[in-house]
């Protein structure tokens, strides 16, 4: 899970750098790698470790209210942070989706699914893909700002994200680890789905 997070961070940076420096082919591959990670995260959110499961950490507004009033304790994402996780994953999914159907300005490169839409739609998708990156930047900025905010208040969130170890409030249920073979299956499925998409998503 931590690996997925840091790989995402690196690949988002690499995607930006590669497209800025005329390496559109690398940019497309990087996008496909991000797609694999997103699918993996989605699956792991269903069958993975306790703190990764959406059903365990995505809660409604009442839980967020409780959290603000200091009535929440647990391992993993707090109810407010959950919103950030969902927003970032959704924004990335939109971005990857747009990239898949985009084509470049010159007709040299295109996402693996660009033939599913018309040429004008592919051009529009590219324009929106470019604009949408700002939404992602905004969410990343918010994400980093939140971490700094907690840090000022004495909570180090980066360390557990690197080492995997966090000090929990007494009485909190610790994380239940996911099974390694489930992770392997999730990885295989996400690679399989990505390869199918790279192949142009036959038979469509």
């Amino acid at each position: 899970m931590r690996l997925v997070h840091w790989l995402l961070a690196i690949l988002i940076g690499f995607s930006w750098w590669s497209v800025r420096n005329h390496h559109t082919d690398w940019h497309i591959w990087s996008g496909c790698a991000i797609l694999t990670l997103l699918v993996f995260r989605l699956l792991w959110g269903l069958v993975g470790s306790s703190t990764a499961r959406f059903s365990n950490f995505v809660r409604g507004p009442r839980a967020i209210g409780d959290y603000f009033r200091g009535r929440w304790s647990g391992a993993g994402h707090n109810p407010l942070g959950a919103m950030s996780v969902v927003a970032i994953l959704a924004a990335l999914a939109v971005q990857v989706g747009l990239g898949l159907i985009s084509q470049d300005e010159d007709g040299l490169y295109a996402g693996p699914l660009y033939r599913l839409v018309g040429t004008d739609a592919s051009d529009s998708a590219r324009d929106i893909h470019e604009l949408w990156f700002n939404a992602i930047l905004g969410l990343i900025a918010l994400h980093v700002a939140a971490i700094l905010f907690y840090r000022i208040r004495g909570r180090h969130l980066t360390k557990p994200m690197v080492t995997g170890r966090a000090v929990l409030d007494p009485g909190t249920q610790p994380m239940r680890r996911g099974k390694w073979w489930v992770a392997l299956i999730c990885l295989a499925v996400s690679i399989g789905i990505t390869r199918w998409i790279i192949a142009g998503a036959p038979p469509f």
């Binding site: 084509q103 010159d106 007709g107 040299l108 295109a110 033939r115 040429t119 592919s122």
Partner: peptide
């Protein structure tokens, strides 16, 4: 030129 290029690429990729 760009549009023509795209049209050709679509033909080949099809």
């Amino acid at each position: 030129i760009g549009k023509s290029n795209k049209a050709i690429k679509r033909e080949f990729d099809g």
